[in-house]
Design a protein around this nucleic acid. Sequence first.
DNA 1: GTCTATACCCGGATAGAC
DNA 2: GTCTATCCGGGTATAGAC
Lengths: 219, 219
Amino acid sequence: MTGLKSKQKKGLSRIQEKNRARIIDAALAEFSRHGYSGTTIDKIAASAGMSKSNLLYYFSSKSAIYEAALAHILDVWLDPLRGLNVDNDPAEELSHYIHQKMKMSAELPAESRLFANEVLQGAPRIRPVLENDLKRLIDEKTKVIQSWIDQGRIKAIDPVHLIFSIWSMTQHYADFEPQIVALTGKSLKDADFRDTAESTVLHLVLSGLGLKRRTGQDA
Amino acid sequence: MTGLKSKQKKGLSRIQEKNRARIIDAALAEFSRHGYSGTTIDKIAASAGMSKSNLLYYFSSKSAIYEAALAHILDVWLDPLRGLNVDNDPAEELSHYIHQKMKMSAELPAESRLFANEVLQGAPRIRPVLENDLKRLIDEKTKVIQSWIDQGRIKAIDPVHLIFSIWSMTQHYADFEPQIVALTGKSLKDADFRDTAESTVLHLVLSGLGLKRRTGQDA
DNA sequence: GTCTATACCCGGATAGAC
DNA sequence: GTCTATCCGGGTATAGAC
């Protein structure tokens, strides 16, 4: 973690800890929908069930809340990719990764939107994290994919663009959910829809790599 | 066009026409980067080279500018999909579509971001357009894909999810550009990078449909 | 540690001179 | 058609009582 410190809970009381957590949750929901400028401290406070001034006691400023929310999601956000293991079966590893990403789109859509929002606006606050932590992670994982290619276990493809494709296809279901609902009447909350979505992504990726889909799809 | 009227230029003078166009351009750039609440009329005016009050002479309110900008991009935005023709070769049609979408990400990133921003925030203003115009278009084009499947010209796939995949993979390069730059040091402005990106998307889609890539890639 | 009151500023929008 | 001046609401942040 470079730009944003993920946790600095030194000596916080139970109630402080709990209130901070409630604020972060509320902030996540608000920021992810309305962007930074579009959300007010008042709204966050209301959503967290406390007064505006009380909230300002826990966080000194609006941007402090925003950065805390951002830092809070980063770890869980980057986690699935860390699991890609070069020693395992490529089809299994990638199926698992896609499944994890789709699960996050389904269960943590606000996190996805907040991240999208931040990047869409030029990533002013998490640029350092992207350039350092995430860059290192990507360099490591593209090597994993490249070695699968070198070993002849998957067809040749550009590893970075493959990862971008997986990111975009899976996150799309969270970030563009209103459009998806408008067009299909369904979302990832619908189990069948979610299965079809995941199957489609899985199929595109695996067949692009010359792999067959495994029978049990959630590795 | 249902929710937003695309053009209502009744009897505008040359200078009015020109100033309105300049405002829309400036607004597009600002809104796409900072979102609705994050952009100020002042900024738009400055970027358009006129005073705030003068701008307010042309558009009565901030939201009027926003809606005009949104309406302005919608036609060009939905245009590529309209071209999908059931009578032509699927590989050629889809290659062409992907090429068009990638071209738009490269040449009209602000348009892409504005659209993404709007949808991300719940599509409050273009929901009607999505539910009507775009819905009709999608229904029509999924039928095209489905008939290719029925004719045995491409492998079975869910047509809607296929379209979502193409949208997400191509638009990703515009919407998440800051992240892509942070990770690769390159963007679609780099010709080689753009070729590799497009090839990867093309490869994933075509191999997923059991098709071979055509030699000339821009159909 | 939590609340009320308020200072302060910024941005949207209007009035009216030129 | 363009400008200056200004009003006004809303939002951040602080001071200080409890």
